[in-house]
């Protein structure tokens, strides 16, 4: 396993299109619920333990070799908002294109054939980690980190928040992020015996509800 491969995959400059998404931060800023570093931290913490945990478990399970179609269906069931399902598939398609160019592998080719419209991004992330020679813990860490780094970066642009403050938020969440990644891997290991019901299903009602409103805005800075 190469530690440098993890840095390549987790790098914000990895060309997978994530920068166009705010993870719900744009809608929360507009609603007046994110106004500075403290409320951003609260937002990110809530997202980490819900959407972040689910994404991390899906990614870890994919990295462990679970059936991608089953994981993709599990992601659908855990993403009631069609706007968020569409965003996850779009991001999955972009990530798959970048990953196939970076770590060519028959596994990634097969997923591209199986999901012409894109698979959920965390599933692709886990498969990309596997193709890069990384393990389930790496995939879970990547997914959990993305669940908070996206909103933090977006809020810098949306609120002109000091980038030092945004990075401070991410650093303070680091210990919780490790715990979320660990419990995601633990759940992912149970998928082989128990099926995808073993995956966490933690939900955030406001992220789901606000995503639909956000998708209907005529003008927005971020795609989701």
């Amino acid at each position: 396993m190469s530690r440098a491969a993890l840095l390549v995959l987790a790098d914000g400059r990895f060309p997978a299109g994530g920068h166009a998404h705010s993870g719900g931060a744009e809608a929360a800023v507009k609603a007046g619920r994110i106004t500075g570093a403290a409320s951003l931290e609260d937002f990110c913490r809530g997202r980490l333990h819900t959407a972040g945990l689910v994404a991390a478990a899906l990614a870890a399970a994919a990295a462990l070799g679970a059936d991608p179609a089953g994981l993709d269906a599990a992601a659908d069931a855990r993403t009631p908002s069609p706007a968020l399902r569409a965003a996850a598939r779009r991001l999955g398609r972009q990530l798959l294109r970048a990953a196939r160019a970076t770590w060519p592998s028959p596994g990634l080719d097969a997923v591209a054939r199986q999901f012409p419209k894109g698979a959920h991004q965390p599933v692709v992330l886990g498969l990309a980690a596997r193709a890069a020679g990384l393990g389930p813990g790496d995939a879970a860490h990547c997914a959990a980190y993305e669940s908070v780094s996206g909103p933090a970066t977006a809020t810098v642009r949306l609120l002109s928040l000091d980038p030092f403050d945004a990075t401070g938020v991410l650093a303070r969440l680091a210990p919780e992020l490790d715990r979320v990644a660990d419990s995601a891997v633990e759940a992912a290991r149970r998928v082989a015996d128990e099926g995808t019901d073993a995956l966490p299903a933690a939900s955030a009602p406001l992220l789901e509800v606000m995503a639909e409103a956000h998708a209907a805005w005529p003008v927005r800075l971020f795609a989701s």
Binding site: A28, D42, C44, R45, T50, D197, P205, L206
Partner: peptide, 20 residues
């Protein structure tokens, strides 16, 4: 559909925050 909501004292952090 598979959704789990966890809230109240002792729930994972951020449950009463702007995302949840």
């Amino acid at each position: 559909l598979d959704q789990e909501l966890s809230c109240g004292p002792g729930a994972p952090g951020g449950w009463d925050g702007p995302a949840v």
